[in-house]
């Protein structure tokens, strides 16, 4: 087991190097750089850009050097925690992301917890009461939840919240706390605003998880070992929890791998619509304006979390399922 984990960690290194090259190539692909698009933007609105400062920044970040050198600088910088400089915000990437990261993690974690809390009982009910009215009703609700894009739901919510409560539900806190450091009042304000984005972002995930849990559980419920356990006199609910439910959880564990990056990326479009102070809108803006260090570091961070997440779910699967632990790797 230890050998396996060590091996997986070693394999992660070349994976990440390859991803970083890929990310760098992608952000380099559009013609020009940040400064060119900045100058163009300035000209468009009839202002002159400070060419001297731009040339200085260009030299400082090696934009006059060939691409491989710039890649090396960027990549080695990340190793020591320097994610580069955001040209748009004129400050280090670390500072730009800083506060938003914590808010994003808060929103995402609450969303995920809520998704699980709702999806599990509904999925189990749907599977054990297949083709009942309850199952049909929940399936319908679930399909609606899956089919409606989150940002549409966000717009609908905003409209009705305005009509019914006369409040704006945008932002994650009342406007007076924006930009302030954390305080008890600010925290309370955040909690008050939190439930709207959580519900909106959570619907699709919940509906999807209900469908998958139901399908997996239905497969398992028909297996012979369920009948064997019942023939032993075990209470039907205990049978359900001990055997088929546990068997159907493999998909759930593999899902954990993809959860880490979603926690950070923070439901971009919905966040834009609701003007949430999360990292999602930041990433989109950075990609639009060719703010390459901000965008690149962001993508790298997501890739890193994905790789780590996959590792965690693989290890968890192996711990959880003896078939993977003991049979894995046997070849024909």
């Amino acid at each position: 087991m230890v050998r396996y984990i060590l091996w997986r960690i070693v394999v992660m290194i070349p994976t990440l190097v390859l991803i970083s090259m890929f990310v760098f190539t992608i952000i380099e692909l559009p013609p020009g750089d940040y400064f060119e698009s900045y100058v163009a933007e300035m000209r468009a609105i009839g202002e002159k850009a400070d060419m001297q400062e731009i040339e200085e920044l260009r030299a400082r970040y090696g934009f006059d050097k060939p691409a491989p050198i710039r890649y090396l600088r960027w990549a080695t910088g990340m190793l020591v925690g320097d994610f580069g400089y955001s040209f748009e915000y004129r400050m280090p990437v670390n500072d730009v992301v800083g506060d938003r990261l914590w808010l994003t993690i808060l929103v995402s974690t609450v969303t995920i917890a809520l998704t699980w809390l709702i999806a599990f009982p509904i999925g189990i009910y749907s599977a054990t009461h297949q083709y009942s009215w309850g199952d049909y009703g929940l399936t319908l609700v679930g399909l609606i939840g899956l089919a409606i894009p989150n940002f549409v739901l966000a717009l609908v919510f905003m409209y009705f919240a305005n009509i019914w409560f006369g409040t704006s539900i945008g932002n994650l806190m009342d406007p007076q706390y924006l930009g302030q450091s954390m305080s008890w009042d600010k925290f309370k304000s955040i909690l008050e605003h939190l439930w709207i984005p959580v519900i909106i972002i959570g619907t699709a995930g919940t509906a999807g998880m209900v469908r998958r849990l139901r399908a997996n559980l239905l497969d398992e419920l028909q297996k012979q070992y369920v009948m064997t356990a019942r023939a032993r006199g075990l209470h039907p609910f205990r049978v359900l929890v001990k055997y088929p439910l546990r068997m159907s959880l493999n998909f759930f564990i593999s899902d954990i791998g993809s959860i880490l990056p979603t926690i950070i990326s923070g439901a971009e479009i919905t966040a834009v619509v609701l003007s949430l102070e999360t990292t999602g809108p930041l990433l989109i803006r950075a990609l639009q304006s060719q703010d390459m260090y901000l965008a690149g570091s962001f993508l790298m961070f997501l890739a890193f979390l994905t790789v780590i997440g996959v590792l965690i779910s693989d290890i968890a699967l192996a711990l959880f399922d003896p078939r993977i632990r003991l049979k894995g790797g046997s070849m024909k």
Binding site: K223, Y225, T228, Y243, R246, M247
Partner: peptide, 8 residues
């Protein structure tokens, strides 16, 4: 083959 749960 299937009368036992493979996880226990």
């Amino acid at each position: 083959m299937t009368s036992f749960s493979p996880l226990h």
